[in-house]
Amino acid sequence: MTKAKIGIVTVSDRASAGVYEDLSGKAIIAVLNEYLTSDWEPVYKVIPDETDVIEATLIEMADVQNCSLIVTTGGTGPAKRDVTPEATEAVCDRMMPGFGELMRAESLKFVPTAILSRQTAGLRGDSLIVNLPGKPKSIRECLDAVFPAIPYCIDLMDGPFLECDEAVIKPFRPKAK
């Protein structure tokens, strides 16, 4: 069985400059380690809030590193430097707006400012790219909401079969006919 490669990209000027430790990217890795029982390899980067750097990183992870899933954190708010959704849309062949809709709906259960988040998702070649918010606490909330659909999405794109610990997260896959 092929080892899945999963890109984790933290988009943060301050974390990329070493002003503070990247907790959000590490939170994504921790959650994925809890979810996944299949063998996987993280491809991890911390980069600044620069459109061209985000685009180049997503292209590299999708086209060169062959990551079947790329999860970003940060850069999804309304601040002028928050450009992750625009960079994601620029490199994607098709957008998957249901991911952002569901994450915002889930986050609204916890904070009224969830409507300010612009996270989205899209497809580039054989890769699913999902933008998460930048707060470590919201990483788990958002991934818990959308991850049940991710393994099947990757199946439909002929990617690696992601097996999960169903006591932690139960992926949805239609029953075979």
Rank of each mutant, 00 (worst) to 15 (best):
K5P: 01
K175H: 09
Y20H: 14
E86L: 08
M96R: 04
T120Q: 09
D52P: 07
V146A: 07
C153E: 12
R94N: 07
S68K: 01
V19R: 01
T113F: 10
G159S: 10
K26Y: 07
D39C: 11
K80D: 11
V9D: 06
I150Y: 04
D82A: 08
E141S: 11
K175R: 14
D93A: 03
P97R: 11
Y44R: 09
I47K: 03
A62I: 05
R81V: 03
E166N: 13
I154A: 06
K170Y: 07
S117P: 01
V111A: 09
M96T: 10
L156Q: 15
K5N: 15
G134E: 01
K26M: 12
L102S: 13
E60R: 15
D144T: 07
D158C: 14
A176L: 14
I8S: 00
I150H: 01
F99T: 02
F99Y: 15
L102V: 13
V9N: 05
L69H: 03
A56D: 15
V31D: 07
I115D: 08
T57V: 11
G100S: 04
I169L: 14
A4Y: 06
N66D: 15
A121V: 11
E166L: 06
R173V: 06
K177P: 12
G100I: 00
P160L: 13
K5G: 02
K109E: 11
V130K: 05
A121Q: 06
A114T: 08
D22W: 00
R118S: 01
V11M: 02
F99R: 02
D13W: 02
V91E: 02
P85G: 07
Y44G: 02
S107T: 11
S127P: 05
V91C: 09
A79E: 13
Y44W: 12
T51G: 05
E101M: 04
P160C: 14
Y152D: 12
V146Y: 08
A145H: 09
V46G: 05
P160T: 14
V71D: 00
D126T: 10
M103A: 03
K109F: 07
M61W: 04
Q119R: 10
T37G: 10
M61H: 15
E34C: 09
D63E: 15
G7F: 05
T73P: 03
L108Y: 06
R173M: 10
T10D: 02
G122Q: 04
I115K: 13
K5I: 04
A79W: 02
L36I: 13
S16F: 03
G74W: 08
